[in-house]
């Protein structure tokens, strides 16, 4: 017998971004905190409605870039000055002008890797299983439809109330999200 897990939450579907953003505002002002919204493309207004402002990524990328610079310098300096000093064309051992291109590339490389893996890490990806995928119509979230899901972990969550609340917001469909 399969163990019965508690519901993940209740999900409402919208067919245009205007209602979607309005719904996020409504959910937020109704006092819900444990909810998420899904859209097939980035919508600035939706991020604002959810109260998302700056994030840690630029700072992380800056640190990544600085780390790349330091690593590049350390590599060039250690190999050319300390480990195997070699006079080439009378140039100084510590030829800092000649290091500039390599340092630049290392900075960019580390910063770019930080940007990509930092974004994936903060987003908790890859994560191939997520309860929202159990809703059949959620396949449209990557195409043309917008979804708001209030999760069962929210203290204000009550299956019937929340369902009714979401139904008042959307003209399309409200469904339960199996875990």
């Amino acid at each position: 017998m399969k163990p019965v897990l508690p519901l993940h939450g209740v999900m409402a579907e919208f067919d245009n971004p205007t209602e979607f953003v309005a719904a996020i505002h409504a959910v937020k002002s109704a006092g819900y905190e444990g909810f998420d919204a899904y859209s097939p493309m980035p919508i600035e207004e939706a991020a604002e409605a959810m109260g998302l402002h700056g994030n840690k990524l630029p700072l992380m990328v800056l640190c990544g870039g600085i780390a790349g610079f330091c690593c590049g310098y350390a590599l060039a300096y250690w190999t050319g000055v300390i480990n195997y000093p070699l006079n080439i064309g009378g140039r100084p051992l510590h030829s800092w002008p000649a290091y500039i291109p390599v340092l630049f590339e290392c900075t960019v490389l580390f910063a770019a890797l930080t940007a990509v893996f930092g974004m994936l890490g903060l987003n908790g990806l890859p994560k191939h299983y997520h309860p929202v995928f159990n809703v059949e119509r959620f396949a449209l979230a990557s195409r043309s439809r917008f979804f708001v899901c209030i999760e069962a972990t929210d203290p204000k969550f009550d299956l019937e109330d929340t369902k009714r609340f979401l139904q008042s917001l959307t003209t399309v469909e409200v469904s339960e999200v199996q875990p």
């Binding site: 064309g89 009378g90 140039r91 002008p97 000649a98 500039i100 291109p101």
Partner: peptide, 12 residues
């Protein structure tokens, strides 16, 4: 500036 400097510096 870097373009000019690096090329002149390297060729010497």
């Amino acid at each position: 500036n870097l373009s000019q400097f690096l090329i002149v510096w390297s060729a010497n």
